[in-house]
Amino acid sequence: MSILRKYTVIVPLSLSIVLLVTACSDSKASQCQRLIDVVNKGSELIDNNKGQQVTTSLQLSKDLEAVTKQIKELKLKDPKLQEFQSRFVQVFETFSQLIAKAGKALGSAKNAQDSSEGRIKIQKARGEIDTALTAAANAAKQSDDLASQVNKYCSQSK
């Protein structure tokens, strides 16, 4: 094998190894992007399903549980991003629980009979929905604040 032929094989092989190692490194930017992508997916679910019916609300709750699981499963190495990850898990768990609670209350109100017992059921459901919506608004504010912090952190250079 001639020396030129030998280098023709070694150089591309070495370059491939370097590119593979570089591509597999888990930089802060790639970790940020993975976290932001999953969080955006959950936020879009909420935005697209605001004010929907009972079955949609219950499905949204399940979908948010799936997003929460995806956030939990991100393998982030950056300690600050791990902290953000944990906080987003809490926020999306809260959203999921509150939306499920509001959906169930809405379903209860829709199934109430036209009677004094039914009106009591509706009043109770209305209170549960109002409570859930207030708590969801607080969770949304936390989510917005957290997203702002993540964007600020991720835009900083190493």
Rank of each mutant, 00 (worst) to 15 (best):
M1V: 12
Y7I: 06
V9E: 13
V11N: 08
V11R: 07
S14Y: 12
I17A: 15
V18L: 15
V18K: 05
L20T: 09
A23I: 00
C24E: 08
S25F: 14
S25N: 12
K28P: 03
A29E: 14
A29T: 11
S30F: 09
Q31P: 00
C32N: 09
Q33D: 15
R34N: 12
I36S: 06
D37I: 03
K41G: 07
K41N: 11
K41R: 14
L45D: 02
N49G: 03
K50E: 11
G51Y: 01
V54K: 11
T56V: 04
T56S: 12
L60E: 05
A66S: 11
V67R: 08
T68E: 07
Q70M: 05
Q70F: 06
Q70S: 15
K72H: 06
E73L: 03
E73D: 14
E73K: 10
K75A: 04
L76D: 00
K77I: 04
K77Y: 01
P79C: 13
P79D: 06
K80S: 10
Q82T: 05
E83W: 00
S86C: 05
R87M: 11
F88G: 01
Q90F: 10
V91L: 08
F95G: 00
A100S: 10
A102F: 00
A102C: 05
G103R: 02
G103C: 02
K104W: 07
S108M: 03
A109Q: 06
K110L: 07
N111A: 13
D114K: 07
S116D: 15
E117V: 12
R119N: 15
I120M: 15
Q123T: 05
Q123G: 05
Q123D: 07
K124T: 15
R126S: 13
G127R: 02
G127T: 14
E128Y: 01
I129L: 02
L133V: 13
A135T: 15
A136H: 06
N138W: 11
N138Q: 06
A139D: 02
A139G: 04
S143V: 02
D144V: 15
D144E: 12
L146R: 04
S148G: 10
S148A: 13
V150A: 00
N151T: 00
C154I: 11
S155A: 10
S155C: 09
S155G: 00
